[in-house]
Design a protein around this nucleic acid. Sequence first.
DNA 1: CATGAAACACACTCCCG
DNA 2: CGGGAGTGTGTTTCATG
Lengths: 155, 155
Amino acid sequence: MDNLDLKILAIYRKDTKISAERIGSTVGLSASAVQRRIKQLKSSGVIENEIAELKAEKFGIQMQFIINVDLIDERNEDIRQFEKKMYSHPSVQQCYYVTGTVDFCIIIAVKDVSEFDLFTQNMLMSDKNVRSFTSLLVVRNSKTDLSSFIDHRVE
Amino acid sequence: MDNLDLKILAIYRKDTKISAERIGSTVGLSASAVQRRIKQLKSSGVIENEIAELKAEKFGIQMQFIINVDLIDERNEDIRQFEKKMYSHPSVQQCYYVTGTVDFCIIIAVKDVSEFDLFTQNMLMSDKNVRSFTSLLVVRNSKTDLSSFIDHRVE
DNA sequence: CATGAAACACACTCCCG
DNA sequence: CGGGAGTGTGTTTCATG
C-alpha cells in the first residue's frame, strides 16, 4: 500500500460511487490503474465493506444518548449475555465493552425522551446484573471515523 | 417510504455494490423498480452517502479509547473551539458534545498506549480549558449503527 | 511488475407500453 | 411496475517500458 493507494482511499472512502476515471484524473493515474488498485484494496481487506449511511431523522430518530453501565457480575458469560441483549435491541447503535470506571459504554438512538425512558426501564433497570448507569444526552456529533486519519496521511 | 423501501434499504445499506437485480429477486421486484426506488431514496436524503469502511488494523491501529472530558468554560465559543481542535486530530473518530456529568465524549483510535499517552498530553492535559477527563479502554466493539434499527422494521 | 489503451461484459438510465 | 434500447462503468486482455 503506497501513497497512491492512500490518495485513492481518501477519495473513494467518502464516496464509493465516484468513477475511477475521476479519481484517476486527480491522483494522476488512468482509470484502469485506479480500478485495479481499488480491487486489490478490497481483496486484501483494507476496504472491509461498502455501505450506505442513512439519515436517522428520516426514521423519526431525533435523539442520541451515551450510557455508561456498571455491571455487578463481570464473568465472561455475563459480559457476553449483556452484549447480546444490547445488540438485539433496535435502538442500540454501538456497544463498547470497556475497562475503566464502568463496564460498558453504549450509544442509543431514539425518537424521544419517552423512548429513552422505556429503554432504561426495560433494558437496564430491570436487569439484575446492572449495578448502575449514567446517561449523557448527545447535543451534537459529526461523524468522522477513519476519515481524518486517512486524510492526514495522504501525500 | 413503504415496506418495500425498507426491505431494499436493509440489503442495500450493508452492501452498496450489490446489483439491483439481486435485490429485486429477494424483495420481489424488477431491477428497474429497485433502481428507481434507490434513486428516490438518495434524492430524498434517506440515503445520505455511500462510503467504504476501512480495516483499522491495516493502518496499525490496534486500540480504541473513550474519553469523557469536562471543560471549565462552557460558552458556545469554548465548545466550538474544543470540537474543532478534536476533529483536527487524526486519531479522533467521534466527538460527541453532550449534557450530563461531562461535556464531551470522544472516541479515539490509536496504534498503542504511547500514542494514547501523547494524545492526552498534547490535546487534553495541556489544554487550559480542560478541567478533567477519564478514559475507558475499549476491549470489544461490534459496529451496528442503524443496522438493527432497519432490520427490526422490515416486513 | 505496474501501467495505459482497447475490447468486452455488466449494471444503471431512461423511455415506453 | 416491467421490459427494452442506449449509455456509462468496471473488467479483462494485451502491448509497452
